[in-house]
Simulated scan of single mutants.
Amino acid sequence: MATLIRPPPVRSSQAAIENLLELTQLSDIDPNLFTNTRPLWHPPGARGIYGGAAIAQCLSAAQRTVPDDFTIHSMHCYFVLAGNAEIPLIYHVERVRSGKSFATRTVQARQRGRVIFTTTMSFVRENSGGEQRVEHAAKMPDVPQPITGMDDLDYGGNSTGPFQSQRIEILNNDSPHPETKKTRQWMKARGSISPSGGHQAHLSALAYMSDSYFIGTIARVHKLWRYSAVRKDNNKSSIDEDVLKKLLAMDDEELKRVKFLDPADLQRLERLKNGEDISTEKKAEIGMMVSLDHTIYFHNPRRFRADEWMFTEMESPWAGDGRGLVFQKIFSRDGTLIATCVQEGVVRLRQPNESKL
């Protein structure tokens, strides 16, 4: 079964992302143990559950063990094994340190006794920095604002997914240097996060969304084909199979309005729609792309709402040896820098005559 305890009815007073990330505390066993209340999403073709869910639920569990005036400021995560959406997750919080200004927590997410995800988090007491402070912050670039009704294909595969996103054209997209490009998008939780969720619910929602298209930045700045279908040798693709199906169902005018498609993508889609076999092409194509680690630094954790538009900008300073590194800045709509994220992942090309991923 996907949950340890039968899920309760969906709470209409909460946003979809709050229901999705709800935890059940296993107090009768150990007050430091939690489990997912509802089934977790397994993206079509992916090796496991959506990584943002593990990140966000670990944060939610840890937040339940610190005083309300302590707020997360840094989170360092490692993806150890692919999570199985059919098996409940058990989150174990270790209260490493509880000081006057800082508190440290580690959380392990386990399935069948095996650690699949681990994170260490640091919390800081609100207003502990003193009256005089050293302050500066990166400025949000001048970009087109989000437009009502212009959302991308949802990351959940339907219009009722937990969050919305609108991608903007890649900055410096025509440059021959991938490290100079920046991918950009607007995102927000769908609906309204309930007052009862407090600032903790907004932080967990931000953590969930921070994994959206993150390591995929590598494929985008290199203009690699990343929408693979089930292959003729019956090996299932690991990249966006559900998105490919939606794209193939669109007409030419609809495709031109999809901002995240490059001209090369449009040409390939046209060939696929015409029934051409492109599986034998020698062009570079993503064969495997999975996250290894994920770090979030929260800068203004109580000065934003995750159910209002936030702007993200991603860039990759390096890729090599089958891995890639991506930096991400997240701003509130008023230009406040609210988080900086770093992710490294496996990024391998499909090799010639490769029989399986």
Rank of each mutant, 00 (worst) to 15 (best):
D307H: 01
H136N: 08
N172C: 15
Y78V: 00
F123Q: 05
L4S: 00
M150F: 09
K236N: 03
E241N: 12
G113C: 08
E276L: 14
L81G: 02
A56M: 06
K232V: 00
F331E: 06
R114Q: 11
K256Y: 06
E86W: 04
G275W: 06
E241M: 12
F327A: 06
F311A: 12
T280V: 01
R133N: 11
D211V: 10
L247R: 14
E179V: 03
M209F: 08
G129Y: 10
V346E: 01
I296R: 10
T119A: 11
T312M: 06
D233K: 06
P317W: 10
R350M: 11
Q57P: 07
I330Q: 15
D152A: 03
K100E: 08
V290Q: 02
E354D: 07
N274Y: 00
D262Y: 14
M140A: 14
S175F: 05
R271V: 06
L248S: 08
T104K: 02
L272V: 12
P317G: 06
A103E: 14
Q108G: 01
R333V: 08
D233M: 06
L224P: 02
G345Q: 02
I55V: 15
D293S: 07
G149C: 12
S238V: 09
V143A: 13
N84W: 09
R303Y: 00
E344T: 10
V243R: 08
P9W: 11
S316L: 05
L272E: 03
G191C: 01
A56F: 06
A339D: 09
F79V: 10
G52Y: 00
M314Q: 13
S332N: 08
D334T: 09
S165D: 07
E169Q: 14
L349T: 08
H177N: 13
N36T: 04
R220C: 02
G275S: 06
Q200T: 13
K273Y: 03
S332W: 00
F260P: 01
L292V: 14
I330D: 15
Q63C: 05
N19Y: 00
K236Q: 03
I239H: 03
A284D: 11
T24F: 00
V93M: 05
D307E: 14
I116F: 12
P195G: 13
R184Q: 15
Q145R: 15
E308I: 15
A205H: 00
R112A: 03
W318N: 10
T35Y: 05
Y297A: 01
D174K: 05
Q200I: 08
N32C: 11
P263K: 14
L26T: 03
V80I: 09
R6C: 12
T295Y: 06
E270D: 10
W309I: 12
E308Y: 14
R268V: 01
A85E: 13
H202D: 09
Q111K: 04
W186A: 04
I168P: 00
V80P: 11
L349I: 09
S27H: 11
K139H: 05
R333L: 12
F79P: 03
L255F: 05
L40H: 07
F123N: 02
Q145M: 12
D242F: 10
V347S: 04
